[in-house]
């Protein structure tokens, strides 16, 4: 229970930092997505879907026209991550980078295609991926480190008292 609460608190904190008008950086990783992927790969499908739903809701609230997509996309990303982690060895850093890469690609592609359908534009997915390459690379590379940190945090929480 404590571990779950900690994850949701971290989700709120990371989203708060992302929406802060100051301190914008192209090199910042997508911590919200990393949290969803972490929960899905290491806690399973149900946990991934739940945190994906909350993350999708919160991101959708702060996005223009994206709420219907985000509230479906993030649980879907959690589901895909959980399934891939089940098929591959989720504890391996390489697999974690790979799963994060898939999640980031899915997120960007879904947003581009949804906006194109909504507005009648024809922005290419590759244009966005190339333009966002710094954030994508940093998110993928930081995945194993973030996952390790979160695992240690969960272990500290577990050691400190009764846990689920």
């Amino acid at each position: 229970m404590k571990n779950t609460l900690m994850l949701y608190v971290l989700l709120l904190v990371s989203l708060s930092v992302q929406i802060c008008p100051a301190g914008y950086s192209v090199w910042a990783p997508d911590v919200v997505l990393l949290l969803v992927v972490f929960t899905a790969t290491l806690r399973g499908l149900a946990a991934g879907l739940r945190i994906g739903l909350v993350a999708g809701f919160l991101r959708g609230v702060f996005s223009a026209c994206m709420f219907p997509l985000d509230i479906v996309l993030y649980p879907a990303v959690g589901m895909v991550s959980a399934l891939m982690s089940g098929m591959l060895y989720g504890q391996s850093p390489v697999v974690q980078i790979f799963i994060t890469g898939i999640a980031v690609f899915l997120s960007n592609a879904a947003h581009v295609l949804y906006l194109n359908a909504l507005s009648g534009n024809d922005i290419a997915v590759s244009f966005v991926l190339v333009g966002n390459w710094r954030g994508i690379v940093v998110t993928m590379i930081s995945a194993p480190f973030v996952f390790l940190f979160l695992k240690k945090l969960s272990a500290c929480q577990a050691a400190s008292g009764p846990y689920r």
């Binding site: 914008y24 702060f62 996005s63 223009a64 947003h111 333009g131």
Partner: peptide, 15 residues
Amino acid sequence: EVIAREPDDWRGAFI
């Protein structure tokens, strides 16, 4: 005054 911005920067929206 701008109080929050969209988490994804490639599109561009703020509150």
